[in-house]
Nucleic acid binder design. Structure first.
Lengths: 142, 142
DNA sequence: GAAAACTCTACTAAATAAGTAGGGTATTAA
DNA sequence: TTAATACCCTACTTATTTAGTAGAGTTTTC
């Protein structure tokens, strides 16, 4: 199940992706437009900024803006930051590998076998999607 | 992240899939072999039985056994029982559809767009895997 | 009837999710 | 320099869920 954090993070990224220029957008604007608690969104945006997707400006005229082009922001990276490991079990994780404490042998483990495929299929989707790809063309024209 | 419940459920199904005959296997045997809390496994097996994957026998010589052939047990069905909806958001769920309360329009929603693909890719994996497929050939020969 | 082994219901403790609160800091404009 | 603006940061709260555990009941076999 997708966390609210991830969902809101994606929506905020999309909102910023729709902007015509790089002018900072205030947290409050995004929060209102996307029906998100402002304070919650604040902490989500902060972690996105710390991860290198966004930049921010304090003070008058401040807010958040994309640090990279939408077509350079891969969902693989975004999901790792917002949702954690893409793999459903640590023993098939590429970035956060850990062996199972309770499996005698990974090679013969059925769960491992299935989860490996699930991981690869999810990775495939994320690799093939940048922020640009998930933006709706209709909204882009506005 | 895969829940312990699902992981244990899959392991138990695999254990039963490796059995040569349909003789009931006691909960305690599976629990010991797979390093699972017996009482926890008990409730997991119960829900698998209630969902039609297993059958059970009480009393002497009792236990659990597969109700269908391993190649007739699809991971799609198993995952729905153990993990819940395959879709990561209710608005892209085939079995548990619900619209989002906070999205103005599903058609233009970026999250929806991405999650649709993720759902399909996961579904593809599960559709292509029966219990038989995730069993390890080596163990089958024992 | 007793033993075996599942069935069922309820409870507990820990972890996590989804926020909210409150104060601090940096930037800009006057 | 000061005040306003708007992010930055840390901590806290509440609710929910997970991962069990407890205990009694029921069914089957011998």
């Amino acid at each position: 199940m997708l966390s609210k954090k991830t969902k809101y993070g994606l929506k905020a990224l999309a909102y910023l992706g729709y902007q015509k220029d790089r002018k900072p957008v205030q947290i409050s604007e995004i929060a209102e437009h996307e029906n998100i608690s402002q304070k919650f969104l604040e902490s989500i945006l902060l972690s996105l900024r710390k991860s290198g997707f966004l930049s921010s400006k304090k003070g008058k005229g401040g807010g958040y803006y994309l640090l990279k082009e939408p077509n350079e922001i891969y969902m693989t990276d975004v999901m790792r930051v917002l949702e954690g490991p893409i793999a459903m079990v640590p023993c098939v994780s590429l970035n956060f590998y850990e062996s199972c404490e309770d499996c005698p042998d990974e090679k013969s483990c059925s769960v491992h076998k299935l989860m490996l495929q699930v991981r690869d299929s999810a990775l495939e989707v994320y690799r093939n999607n940048t922020l640009q790809d998930i933006l709706c063309d209709k909204e882009l024209k506005k």
